[in-house]
Amino acid sequence: MLTKRIIPCLDVKEGRVVKGVQFVNLIDAGDPVELAAFYDREGADELVFLDISASHEGRQTMIDVVERVASQLAIPFTVGGGINSLEDMKRVLRAGADKVSVNTAALLRPELITEGADYFGSQCIVTAIDAKYDETLGSWRVYTHGGRKPTEWEVTAWAKEAVKRGSGEILLTSMDQDGEKSGFNLKLTKAVSEAVTVPVIASGGAGNAQHFYEAFTEGKADAGLAASIFHYKETSVREVKRELKGKGMVIR
């Protein structure tokens, strides 16, 4: 039986981890490679790196980061942010990433998912979805551009479309919950998990181990992703996993 996965997410800008990371015993808390190794030791099941560089130079630097991380890390990792073409995917995967995640570019041109899946296999292509509840829709609407622009897509419809096109995993972020630390959006997570046949990573709102537990049980998620609670040491990957094991979950 597969374990439920705990995934820390690191935002990388111009080759450095941003959003203050508070760690002791690290020489340089902004170094993605050092942090990746730290999370590996902590028992993270996977890592996600999100490139938030605005410049072309920053994106080039990201490739170096991916290479350095790949040479140090013995767990799978996904790279997202600024993946707009098959060429971008090739660069990142050849540098050593195991998966790429696509978001806005896939909504603007869904063929991107198909092209990536045909070339690298579905297991390499993660579709990241940012969703927010919409009264008029009576459901969650999908947004592009880091949550700034609404699309016509209802979340389960887009998730199904992404999977139909060959996406092997969905990284689902609830914009309503993101940064609130009040728990994952369980209804949204459950709706998407039940709509697709591929694993769903719940994101947005994690504040403690109980929240992960709820996402895995009520939300039916396969994995849970968090950033700040791990970075700011409000809890640790090890602690979350220990609590989940205590509740009888299958955890590595």
């Binding site: 039986m1 597969l2 374990t3 099941d45 591929v198 694993p199 590595r252």
Partner: peptide, 10 residues
């Protein structure tokens, strides 16, 4: 059950 078998197993 989901296919592929993707993730950590014992």
């Amino acid at each position: 059950y989901k296919v592929p078998h993707m993730g950590w197993n014992k």
